[in-house]
């Protein structure tokens, strides 16, 4: 059974890898955005799903990755590869530095602090000459959607394998222990501070790489799009809808919700956002444990599954 899952997963990756050669350019572009969202959701999964620290500001890492890559390429004329590395390094360094004080906070305070951090960094960048202030930066144009697609796919696979490793390693168990009861984990001898900072840095790494790809792909960035707050909501809803704290959940959530949102945007153009809002509410209300859990139990419980979900969390 287990083996079958992995064979299927490998087949799915292979199928996804040939998309640029078989499907239309729109599907490739949609694929890039979907895969980058899956990376962001997976990044959030590490800090929010496994460690239980519900960051609402991972957009700060995405934004730093975007800007690190763009500034390196535009202002210092470095290569894209080097730009990606620099963007990721900036974001990881930021995560470590800021993680030490911020990861002492819990619950809502942690969520709001990360949100405020993202906005604060955006406000600072919009005053920095080297980052093009609020006018943004223009990157060179290349006609290479296939490259961006395969890079995004590779990054998504890498992020998922990392989470798979997390789910089986001592480090990962430590994170779960922190999520369940942090003081108990401390007593058990888990180096909670170090583990939390490492999880934060891992989340930053993947988010920043996604940002770097996005920057070169879009050819133009500005603070509003790089530090877009709604990005946070999207990555969290994808992770939660798919199943927070699971290995494949965030990826499945990202694929499903990207699909829904894209179909809405092309077909009921105009009221698409409204419907997406309703989808979010319904998804959280009825499948708070994610679609993986729902798929497993729905056949047995039937529609009562949804009622159970609501009953469990109601006042």
């Amino acid at each position: 059974m287990r083996a079958l899952v992995w064979v299927l997963a490998a087949a799915a990756v292979a199928a996804l890898a040939i998309v640029p050669f078989t499907l239309s350019p729109v599907m490739v572009q949609f694929g890039i955005s979907m895969l980058l969202f899956a990376v962001l959701a997976q990044g959030w999964n590490i800090i929010g799903g496994f460690t239980g620290y519900a960051s609402f500001g991972n957009s700060v890492f995405f934004g730093l990755g975007t800007y690190g890559t763009a500034v390196a390429m535009v202002q210092f004329h470095l290569s894209f590869a080097l730009g990606l590395v620099i963007g990721a390094a900036v974001a990881v360094a930021f995560a470590v530095l800021i993680g030490l004080p911020v990861l002492r906070l819990r619950g809502h305070y942690f969520a709001i602090t990360t949100l405020a951090l993202s906005e604060a960094v955006a406000a600072i960048i919009s005053n920095l000459d080297i980052a093009g202030r609020n006018q943004g930066l223009i990157l060179p144009l290349i006609r290479g959607d296939t490259m961006f697609y395969e890079l995004s796919l590779g990054l998504m696979v890498l992020a998922t394998l990392t989470v798979l490793w997390l789910a089986r390693s001592r480090f990962g168990f430590g994170l779960i222990a922190i999520r369940e009861r942090e003081d108990a984990a401390e007593v058990m001898g888990i180096p909670t501070t170090r583990y939390k900072v490492m999880a934060f840095a891992l989340a930053a790494l993947f988010s920043a790489l996604a940002g770097g790809i996005q920057a070169y792909y879009l050819t133009f960035i500005d603070p509003a799009s790089a530090f877009d707050l709604s990005l946070n909501v999207r990555m969290i809803i994808m992770a939660v809808f798919g199943g927070a704290g699971t290995v494949l959940g965030p990826v499945i959530g990202a694929f499903l919700l990207s699909g829904v949102s894209e179909v809405l945007a092309s077909y009921i153009t105009g009221v698409a956002s409204l419907f997406f809002g309703l989808v979010i509410i319904a998804a959280v209300l009825f499948t708070p444990k994610g679609v993986i859990d729902a798929a497993r139990r729905l056949p047995r419980r039937g529609l009562a599954y949804f009622l159970d979900a609501v009953r469990e969390t109601r006042l």
């Binding site: 939660v240 609501v310 469990e312 109601r314």
Partner: peptide, 8 residues
Amino acid sequence: FLVRAPMF
């Protein structure tokens, strides 16, 4: 209906 769900 969500009061006892995880905070996010």
